[in-house]
Write a protein that binds this DNA or RNA. Structure first.
Lengths: 292, 292
DNA sequence: GCGTTTCCGGAACTGATATTACAGGAACGG
DNA sequence: CCGTTCCTGTAATATCAGTTCCGGAAACGC
């Protein structure tokens, strides 16, 4: 058990380096007959079988529970839960990898024609997925809350999302009173938060890489009993901890930058819906404002 | 054949019946605040978090273990292991289907289409039309000019489009030096224009109802021999008289407000293209800026 | 502002699960 | 053909997980 093939001596440390599947292939020759059956079972329906309890893993592979346990031990894992943890982390990593690769590596070397069309099509797809993934109840609750017009409404965004907050602010101001935007600076936060009252609506925009200051300020807003709405990306900002409503938007593009167009479009959808709901009041308001 | 994880789901084995994700969306409206946090946690890193033990699920979602349990109960599962079994079967099913093509596709078209879906679809259509109507040569000329990095770059927008200018500014600042944004006030215009030099790039955003001040300022910019690019709507702002490049975007929605999402998406497309073209320099610049 | 209801999390409980010990049995070498 | 060695499954055990109960607190309605 000590000669080569033991994953470069990583056995003693945390077995987090090599992927589980790679470990299986590497250790295969060292496995006994029944252990190989277990390995076959895992590779046959990978990685799902690894998430099953030992008993089920064993039965589906045609071996006994202890054999499965010896198998994962041979892979270098200290315990079965340890093995499952590695499997989870691997799956998680794989879900995020396409983006990391795109962000880390320089853009595609050759792709000149129709770049615009591809990009727009990509974003159009993001919009569709965004619409599909957002629960209708959340969207409606958000719009209804804004349409009520009770309490103030505070908007806030990060480095790239602040303009989106500004865009929403520009429209909301026409529709209802009590709209204002917070800047992200910690220094003046106390001043800005001083007249946030319970029941006020707070709209926070936050996408990767999530802004720590936004998180802090959101915590303060939550402490002041503000009704917080979060508009974020598909990986969901930690601000969600303090939010009553969370609206995740697709931002992946495969390019260096993520695309926030879905957030922007969502804002427009919300504005349209709020205008619809609050029309009697909003219509009057818009009319008088446009005259002056 | 087993104990049946139905609880409302169809009978008979349900190979891909009501997916867990669909159940989450369907149940969202009747979840309590903390339960929603659990739901978002799951959707945020789906489906991996569901394979974790309850304690870890709870901690990663910012709630307590009992809340997670109540959450899965609300979804219709008799127990947490039962919920995990459903998750495994779903993952297994997805792995069998033609690659991960299904993974990227919208979760489930079965639910009824809502105003949100229609609106997003409408905007997606606008994006496609916009991409089709904009000459590739114009788009490329614009990107190339920005990628050169010669001269300064001035951005300007109207009431609703100023945030879009701000968004573009935020990105351009990372890519190249000499980027600044003009506010629309006539009073300070002379000060702002004083250091505009021939060959500088001026990017103007203007949609209906067209802003007279923008038109005036654009005239001044043209007089100073700035290379003016106009991003506008399908009816084309009068600023086009002074522009070297005009990029019209579709904004019609049939609702009270026009949708500027196409302008926003176009900006993102330009940014992506410029980043691509200027990568050697831009990459270094972004790297050093992100460190500091 | 006060009473009522709902909701959430801490802590004890119970059951299932991973784990270990041990014995039967096959394969191989003598 | 017999003895040794290793492999493998069964059965018992200890641990950890999921589950439940209840007190406190926030949200809601009057």
């Amino acid at each position: 058990m000590d000669d080569a093939a033991d994953a470069g001596g990583g056995g003693a440390g945390e077995p987090g380096g090599a992927s589980v599947e790679a470990r299986v292939h590497e250790a295969m020759h060292r496995l006994t007959s029944a252990e190989k059956r277990a390995a076959r079972g895992l590779l046959g329906s990978y990685p799902t079988l690894g998430f099953a309890p030992v008993a089920e893993f064993a039965q589906n592979s045609g071996v006994s529970p202890p054999t499965v346990l010896r198998f994962v031990a041979e892979l270098g894992y200290r315990s079965y839960p340890d093995f499952q943890r590695a499997l989870r982390e691997e799956l998680e990593e794989r879900a995020k990898s396409p983006l990391q690769r795109a962000a880390a590596a320089p853009p595609h070397p050759e792709r000149d024609l129709h770049a615009l069309d591809h990009f727009m099509a990509r974003i159009a797809g993001n919009l569709a997925v965004t619409a599909a993934r957002i629960p209708v109840s959340e969207f409606e609750a958000f719009a209804a809350r804004l349409a009520e017009g009770k309490g103030a409404c505070h908007l806030m965004g990060g480095r790239f999302t602040d303009p989106i907050a500004a865009y929403m602010e520009a429209h909301l101001r026409l529709i209802r009173p009590g709209v204002r935007r917070l800047d992200g600076r910690t220094a003046t936060r106390a001043d800005q938060l001083i007249d946030v009252k319970p029941g006020d609506v707070a709209i926070v925009f936050d996408v990767r890489r999530y802004d720590p200051q936004l998180l802090e300020t959101s915590a303060d807003l939550a402490a002041r009993r503000a009704f917080t709405v979060l508009v974020t990306d598909e990986w969901i900002s930690p601000v969600s901890r303090h939010a009553k409503i969370v609206l995740p938007c697709m931002t992946q593009t495969g390019s260096t930058w993520d695309a926030n167009a879905a957030l922007f479009a969502l804002v427009e959808a919300v504005i349209a819906r709020v205008t619809e709901l609050a029309w009697p009041a909003a219509g009057r308001r818009i009319g008088s404002l446009e005259k002056g």
